[in-house]
């Protein structure tokens, strides 16, 4: 079986400081991988390198494209990479307002990716916008409201709808539940878990919330100071942490 994403020795330095270094892994179709670690451990740098927002200093990120099989996205041309970014890839930002157009209605936000891949039939675009808003539990009568009129949780769900409307195969998520209160978090996680299973999505989720990866991720990667210090199945890593830092991380979770 070909991996969907093959990451090989990715490194990114900010001057003398290490962003992340020596990261390699394979991600298979339908698999969800979590990346956890404290602030400044290089999680977001890594994610941005994978998603093409940052250019890694060296290493390769090979993606199984529909047309040509495995292609290195670091060296492919920018139009191709941006094309991937709006078709097969999706990127869910921590802050919904980074991923949404706040002065465009919810329907327009969802429709943008469709129009970016040359959908030119208003009725069809609107129908799929309504369909997707429904899937993320936003009622149809809010379709013409702007995201500024939405609550934080709704904005995040709208961002997810906007990203998934073109049927991507790989979703990058940067702290998708950050800044939401716990009950909204729970519903969002429930929704994400459903969508991931239903659409057979592969996902890479960066978070510092262990509960999120426990629920969503099949596999886990623990980072500290730009290095990967432990990898394994989620339950294995969380229930039987080997590295001292992972043990600290797991034992730091507050029990209610």
């Amino acid at each position: 079986m070909t991996p969907l994403l093959q990451v090989e020795n990715i490194a990114k330095h900010y001057g003398a400081r290490i962003g992340c270094t020596d990261v390699s892994f394979d991600l298979y179709p339908g698999e969800v991988m979590g990346i956890v670690g404290e602030s400044g451990s290089g999680k977001s740098t890594l994610l941005n390198c994978l998603a093409g927002h940052l250019t890694p200093d060296h290493g390769a990120v090979r993606f199984d494209t529909r047309a040509d099989g495995l292609r290195d996205t670091v060296t492919m041309s920018e139009p191709e990479r941006r094309m991937l970014g709006r078709t097969d890839w999706a990127f869910v930002h921590q802050h919904a307002r980074d991923g949404l157009r706040m002065n465009v209605s919810a329907g327009g936000n969802v429709g943008e990716r469709l129009m970016a891949v040359n959908a030119r039939h208003y009725g069809d675009i609107r129908a799929s916008a309504i369909d997707w808003l429904g899937r993320v539990e936003i009622t149809e009568d809010r379709i013409d409201d702007r995201p500024t009129a939405f609550s934080g949780g709704m904005q995040q769900r709208l961002q997810i709808a906007r990203n998934l409307v073109t049927g991507p195969r790989l979703v990058f998520m940067d702290e998708p539940t950050g800044g939401l209160d716990v009950s909204v978090q729970a519903r969002l996680l429930d929704l994400l878990r459903g969508l991931v299973r239903e659409m057979n999505l592969s996902a890479i989720i960066v978070t510092h919330d262990l509960a999120v990866v426990r629920l969503l991720a099949d596999r886990l990667m623990v980072m500290k100071d730009g290095h990967v210090i432990e990898t394994g199945l989620t339950d294995q890593v969380l229930d039987d942490p080997q590295h001292a830092y992972t043990q600290l991380l797991v034992s730091s979770v507050l029990q209610v």
């Binding site: 139009p79 157009r101 429709g111 943008e112 469709l114 970016a116 891949v117 030119r120 609107r126």
Partner: peptide
Amino acid sequence: SLEEYGLMHVKLYEDISQ
């Protein structure tokens, strides 16, 4: 330069929806 003009249609979409 990359001929990414989907956004232009978002404006027209907003017109029709409003």
